[in-house]
Every structure is written in structure tokens, then in C-alpha cells.
Nucleic acid binder design. Sequence first.
DNA 1: AGTGGGACGCTTTTT
DNA 2: GCGTCCCACT
Length: 727
Amino acid sequence: MTDYLAHLNAEQREAVETVDGPLLVLAGAGTGKTRVLTTRFAHILLTGRAYPTQVLAVTFTNKAAREMRERVSTIINRPAQGLWLGTFHALSARMLRRHTEMVGLKSNFTILDPDDQLRLLKQVMESERVDTKRWVPPTMMAVIQRWKDRGLTPSRVTPAEDTDFAAGRARELYGAFQARLRSLNAADFGDLLLYMTELMREQPDVLTQYHRMFRYILVDEYQDTNLVQYHWLRLLAQAQKNICCVGDDDQSIYSWRGAEVENILRFEHDFPGAKIIRLEENYRSTAPILAAASGLIAHNDGRLGKTLRPGRQDASGECVTVVALWDSDEEAHMVGNRVERLCRDGEPLREIAILVRAGFQTRAFEERLINLGIPYRVIGGLRFYERQEIRDAIAYMRLVVQSADDLAFERIVNVPRRGVGDAALRAMHETTRADGIPLMEAAAKLVANASLKGRTREQLDALLRGFARWHAQLETDGHVLTVATLLDESGYTDMWQRDKSPEAPGRLENLKELVRALADFETLSGFLEHVSLVMENDEMAEGDRVSLMTLHAAKGLEFDTVFLPGWEEGLFPNQRALDEGGVKSLEEERRLAYVGLTRARQRAIVSHAANRRIYANWQTSIPSRFIDELPDDIDRTGSAAMARDTRTLAPATFSDQFPLVARRTRAIAAWGQPARLARVDAIPIGTRVFHEKFGYGTVKAAEEGRLDVAFDKAGDKRVLDRFVEKA
DNA sequence: AGTGGGACGCTTTTT
DNA sequence: GCGTCCCACT
């Protein structure tokens, strides 16, 4: 029978077959948690316990949701359609659309992205006469978000919860912000969960409706849930109690954005008699990597206690390596060289990852990889839907669907330039306030009564007529053609065509891609909903490239080879985290290190540098305490060599001797790179060169490894000589 | 209305 | 060291 159960181990199988009643699966890294979840889902369907629409499956990311959908449909051998499978936010939005009037919204409400959200809050703060210099909107936003994470509506925030932010007016501002969101018929991400949870709490019949709907609930990455998500789940599960949560307390790395590991402990309390199954057999990494990871995480207190056992047949393998370097440049060299060697030995680049603590660290490696001609991708940079041109285009679309979208109007009213400046905008806002009409109508009024003059008036008039036209066209020609027309007629594509900057062609290409993506949706509103909920990160796709990303972004991924640079006190564990959260944060940093190590299948290379350039100046640091915490069977040959080197060459205290450090750095760099120095002289003035970022240009001056180049497209720039090649 | 220069500040981030 | 933001200049 049931051959989908055949390739599970005993624990996994138990987790799949324990279908009724509350179940908590504590799944260590690489122990097959996704397999358990998907097989369990399929098992519920195949044994006829529920129809596909009666299972609620929740993930944190769209990617995880997509993977789960694919794997479930593979097992049940048909397309998995009509499932309630998605992220907390997507599922909540879908539910909320059915009850909008109960929370004071219309069914076509807009979901704001973080950018609009912040702009709106800033406006609210300004109109409430808060000094936004002294009290910066992002901080206020964070306060509000933490409240929303905890399921606190403005009326539920008690005076005791108020912070001293904005002179004790934070609650009041939160209330004003929520009111403003409602008046714009908009919700932010936090609201999707907050409103839905509030509804289920306050409206028993709504809750009952969902109790009848969902027989089984599955939750992925349970350690990442925040309080409002926890309440959301508990409300939905309290009737049938068939809830299965899968998580790993050792991989909880998102407490700073409201996740509460305590939810795992609370689970047993709230669902008495809950069964707990531990998955400890790791099929991903070699024994030495597991030993290193386990040894490290053992330094954390208050764990639920899991020990990873090697489950692989070929579990013996290379030691985890620790390499000590003089400075960050040397570290980048070391990583680059090793990547090159691995590549020569036939390791695919897609199986190599460089995982850093903070985004700014990627740059050094990027430069090195460019220099070596090794293809790479940075994961988690700007996402497609966060790009300026895409956001502008989306603002236009939002206005075609809903002309009352003031935030969208503000964004594009002067993009491209239409002579609408501060004065004109202020006039519109006044009319908006006085007449209680949206900005677009206010603009129409000011055009009609000739309050606006000259070219501004003409161009604005053209824009408004445009919107009327496109709105009508949507009915007749469909959304794809309408958007294409809109982008042309509004002058938007033209704006980029006339733009001479090197990014412009890429932006036009992105716009084309956007129009292409539209075709995958039946309606424009459907597309817009998708866009706001699925800020897709498609850099993961295609190409044999080295991956560069933060440790946070690496969770859930795995690679043969993992480089873990920058293990220094202050950087990792991060000083700011330590300052803010003390021991709790230290433990979270340690879990981050654990996540990093457990991404590796075959080999992990940890490194640290004695000197690092952070922003403008050099900083000296000592190796991370996490290195000391690794168990003994680690290859530290690099460290020993470095210790000797440091003793003989470094000054007793080099923190305040920048010149000396700098000289030494150059010496090492030169020693490691003789070919590079030779090339400095090989680029005379007048040479045609090519630069990865700026394209072709002519050298105008050269000194000390730097070139002044007049680029054809990017203009005059000063660049490092090693980033150009002769054209 | 649009631009250019100086001040600032800088961990992680999904939806 | 670099990008962002705001203000002052044109």
C-alpha cells in the first residue's frame, strides 16, 4: 500500500500518521520537516479524512508555500488546486475579503507596501504636529508593528504599554494611523492578521464558519510565529484541535521582528495532551559539520533539547575549517581562491554559498568574484517589485483600478515631470481636506477652476483624461493592453527612454517583464493583490552561480560548500544586538551561527579577520566567541599560522595605528597579487577600457591603482584599476 | 520647480 | 564610503 510512507523513517512516519489531535513536531535542521509536512498533507487527503479545501496549511514565505503545493500535488498525483495553502498574510487576506465591511473596509481594499506605509505614517505624524526630526517615523512604525505583532489594536494598547516615544503620544498616533488607513480603504501587512484575529475573537459566527471549514491545520516554521499569528492559529484550531505545528527552536532567528519561540512551549499548555515528536536524524550534513553545529548550539540555555544524529551513509567527511586572516581583503581573497579551486575540481558554483551576518559584507566578496570572473548572485537585495520603475508602474495601475488611491496618486503625479511641485501638491491636499474628496478629484477641480496655470495645468489635465481613458479601456481591451497603453501614453516609458543613465535600459526591460507578467492574471486587481502579497524574489532562478546572502536569508536552503566569513566579536555576534537584547540576543546570534553551519552538506569554512574596514575606517577585532565554542575536532591550521603572523608582524596595539595597518595590508595584498600590481602601469592614459558596472570608457588619469575614466554612458568616475579591463 | 551639495547614519527582514 | 534626505540656491 501507501508507498509514499515507505521512504520515511520511524519518527517521520509517526509524525505523518498521527493525524488527529494536536501535534508538535520538533524538527532539527535537515531532518526532513518539509517532507513530513507535505506527506502528512497528502496522507490526510488520500485517506479521505478531508477534502482538499478542508485543510489549512500555513507557511511564512511564498516560496515555502509554492514548494509545498508542488510536492503535495506530486504525491497525490494531480494538481493541488483550491487549497487553503499559503502564507499567514495571503490566507488572512483571502479570509478578510469576505468580511471587510465588519472591519470598516471595502472589499477592494488596497494592501500597502512598506514604502507607502511609512509615507502615510509620516503624513499622519506631521498632521498631528509631531516633530519628525526628533521622533523619526521609522521608529514609530516599528513600535506600531510590534503592537500589531502582539495582536494589539489601538484600544487594546494599555497606557502601561505606551512607550515614551513622541512624548507619550505613541498610542494616540497609532489610533490616528489606523483611522487614516481605513479612510484610504487600505490595510498594511500587520492589519491582515490583526483584523482577522480581532474578527474571530469578537464575532463568534465568523469563527464558527471557519471551524466548519477547516478540519486540519498544518503550520510550518512554527518557531517564527508571533503572538498575533499564534492567536490566529489557536482560534482556528480550538474546535477540532487537529493542528500540527512543525518547528525548531534552535532555528528561531526572528525575535527582533516579533517572533516568539515561547509559542512552542505555549503549545503544550494550550493543547493539553499534545503529542510531541522529535526529528533528529539529519540527512543533509556530514558528521563533522553536525558535530560542530551541535557543539556550538549546546552553549544555549533553555533549549527544548534535540541532538542531531548523522543519518547519511557517507556521513564521514572533511573537518569544519577555521581560517584566520589579517584583514577583510585577505579574507575575500581566501574565499575567492577557494571558490576557484572548488570550481576547478568540478564543484558546481550553485553548490557554493557565502553567508554573511550583514548585507554590507557582501560587497567585498562581490568585488573579489568580479575580479576573478566568477559568476555570483546576491540574494535578498532589491526585489523585482521593489524597484523604482516597477513601483511607479504599479501606482499607475492602482489608480486605474481605484482612482481614490491617494498614495499612488502622490507617487506618480509628477513622474514623469509634469510641473507639479510642492505648491501645486499642497493646493490639492487642501482641496482634498476641504471637500472630502480624493486627490485625483481635487486635481480635476483645480484644473477646471483654473487654480493651476500654464503647462502644469495642461499636463495635469492630460494625465487626468488619460486615467479616464485607461479606466474605460480596461473594460474593452483587457488589462495587458491597457497597461501597455498607459505606460506609453502617460509618458512613463518615454521618460526612461530619454534617460541616459546606465540603469535606464534595464528599467525598460523590467517594465516589459512586468507587462508580460500581467498576462498570467485574469484581472488587474488580481495581479495587484498578487503583487502586494508576493514580493517575489526571483533571483533564485537559473544559472550556475555562487550565492551570496545574509544568514537570515539562508534559512531553509542548503549547499555543498558554505563559507562563513566575518566571525568576529562585534560583527558576529553583532554588537548592537548584544547591546539591545543581552543574553537573549546572544543566544539568537548563536542560533544564527547554527543555522549557517547546518546549511552545509559537505564542507564549511569559517573565517575571521583581525582588521576590517567598516565604512570609512579600519577596525581591529578579536575572533568571535563562537569560534572558541566550536568543539575540538576542527581544522584550525589557518588560525595557528595567523597567530604566529600576528605575533611577529603586528604592533602590540594596532587599533590606533591605522597607517601601520594600512601599510601592512597593502604589502600583503601586493604579495598575494603580483600580477595585479603589474597591471597598474599597463593602463596608460587614453586607453579604452571596460568596467563591469559602468561599461566602456576612456582613461583620463591614473594614480596609485586608481583611474579616472570618462565612461561613455556613466560619465566621469574614479575607479579601481583592477575593476577595468582593456576594451 | 528642479538641482546640487552637505549632514547623517549605517544589523537582520517576510509579508 | 556610500546612499538618502533635506534645504538652499538658481
